[in-house]
């Protein structure tokens, strides 16, 4: 059997590169808040980095709560098919 060609994410270095670019973009976006003046309606929007921090906290909370919900909600795959 011929050896399968290497794909882009088979090489861990490419993943590292991608992540580095991504982290840099996050940092740039956060720093933009220092120079960019927002036209806002809600007082919270004035807070420095509000959208970034909100997005991060919201998603971490979402995933961790959902993970806990598994304890209540999760059943075996054949739950409704059994008996």
């Amino acid at each position: 059997m011929e050896k399968e060609s290497q794909h882009i994410f088979d090489n861990p270095r490419n993943i590292k590169r991608l992540l580095r670019v991504f982290f840099a973009l996050c940092a740039v976006l956060l720093l933009l808040d220092l120079v960019h003046h927002r036209h806002v309606i809600h007082a919270w929007e004035h807070l420095w980095g509000f959208y970034g921090i909100f997005g991060f906290v919201a998603c971490v909370a979402l995933v961790l709560i959902a993970k806990e919900l598994r304890k209540v909600l999760m059943r075996p795959e054949d739950y409704y098919d059994a008996d």
Partner: peptide
């Protein structure tokens, strides 16, 4: 800018949870 910040930091949360192993794995379940 606000939308990009929201989305990138949501993605950052995913990345962080994945890298630290906190992200719940896919499980065969209902």
């Amino acid at each position: 800018i606000a939308q990009l910040q929201l989305l990138f930091f949501s993605a950052l949360a995913f990345t962080w949870l994945k890298l630290t192993g906190l992200y719940p794995p896919e499980l065969r379940s209902v």
